[in-house]
């Protein structure tokens, strides 16, 4: 039974080892176009490695990986080129003649038009991360990879960023794969949560809550996801 729409990501039996250490041990993963998937797990569970493989940064792997269409990425560190102005950071590599206009439009979406001609090092952490998001989205990706993009931000900025990401995702509808270790973040944003442990997908949650979600609405599911991560909430409390 072939699916009528080609999936945005199709991974079968993915295996990756660094020397004797197995990092990914037979991952199967399919992401539908426009689907928001969160990869949840402890540090070292292999989630970032999986993302790097999907980004095409690591090709020495076993198994099948199919990522049709364009892929874009935002990292935990914004990784902007400090010696190029903000707008050029967005337009470089796009190969479009009206790069500045395209960049300005993208900056408008993350509400940073005023900073188009600023040097990246003058931006705050949250602003730089918004530029990084704009840079990823301006490529109109079929698949957007987010590698803990809110990890280095303060709590307040992170809240604002959650709304922004959801907003941008609703507007552009790329398939999103968000790597995080923040359960609430995953529950707030994702359609589906995959829990990774020791290189395997050990649990899948369909969140199925109406959007926009509120913090209170995710509490019930939170306990179950945490249990999959091996955290006993009752005990912790």
């Amino acid at each position: 039974m072939a699916s009528p729409v080609k999936p945005a990501v199709s991974v079968r039996g993915l295996h990756k080892a660094f020397g004797a250490r197995t990092v990914l041990d037979g991952i199967d993963l399919e992401v539908e176009p426009g689907e928001f998937v969160a990869l949840l797990g402890r540090s070292g569970c292999g989630k970032s490695t999986l993302l790097r493989i999907l980004a095409g940064l690591d090709r020495e792997v076993g198994g099948e990986v199919e990522v049709p269409g364009t892929v874009s990425i935002a990292f935990q560190q914004p990784r902007l080129l400090p010696w190029r102005k903000v707008w050029r950071n967005i337009s470089l590599g796009l190969h479009k003649p009206d790069g500045r206009a395209v960049a300005l439009k993208a900056l408008e979406e993350v509400r940073l038009t005023d900073h188009a001609d600023a040097w990246p090092l003058t931006l705050s952490g949250g602003e730089a991360q918004r530029v990084s998001l704009a840079r990823a989205l301006v490529r109109e990706p079929d698949l957007l990879l987010l590698d803990e993009p809110f990890g280095a931000l303060d709590a307040l900025t992170r809240l604002a960023m959650h709304h922004l990401v959801e907003d941008l995702w609703t507007r552009h509808k790329p398939a999103v794969l968000l790597v995080t270790h923040d359960v609430d973040e995953a529950l707030l944003l994702a359609d589906r949560i995959l829990v990774l442990d020791e290189g395997r997908v050990v649990a899948t949650h369909h969140v199925g809550l109406p959007r926009p979600r509120r913090r209170a609405s995710v509490v019930e599911q939170r306990t179950r996801v945490l249990a999959d991560l091996g955290v006993d909430v009752e005990e912790a409390a």
């Binding site: 980004a55 095409g56 940064l57 364009t70 892929v71 874009s72 990425i73 990292f75 990784r79 080129l81 470089l92 590599g93 796009l94 190969h95 840079r135 990823a136 490529r139």
Partner: peptide, 9 residues
């Protein structure tokens, strides 16, 4: 790496 994913030649 970032440049590579973002399509720089």
């Amino acid at each position: 790496e970032a440049a590579r994913v973002l399509g720089y030649n």
